[in-house]
Amino acid sequence: MESSQGRKHLFDLKIPLGSLLGFYGILLLFYGLFGPASVYKKSFNLNVDLIWGILMLVIGSSFLAASYFGRSVKK
């Protein structure tokens, strides 16, 4: 296999990606819990913000965890 020629020089994309998705998760979660219920008329009374907030929080924190543990393994 050809040797990797580039320096491993860029920072880990999982950090900004995980932070952004995690932030959205928290935001939607709180809005789903404490925001007005009337907005969910559109979605047939499904509190999609809450559901999606939890999902995004899980995805975001998995990226952050993968980045954290990936680095400590290398060390």
Partner: peptide, 11 residues
């Protein structure tokens, strides 16, 4: 416009 409540809409 018809089906997304605020929050998800912004997303």
């Amino acid at each position: 416009a018809h089906y997304l409540p605020n929050g998800i809409l912004g997303l």
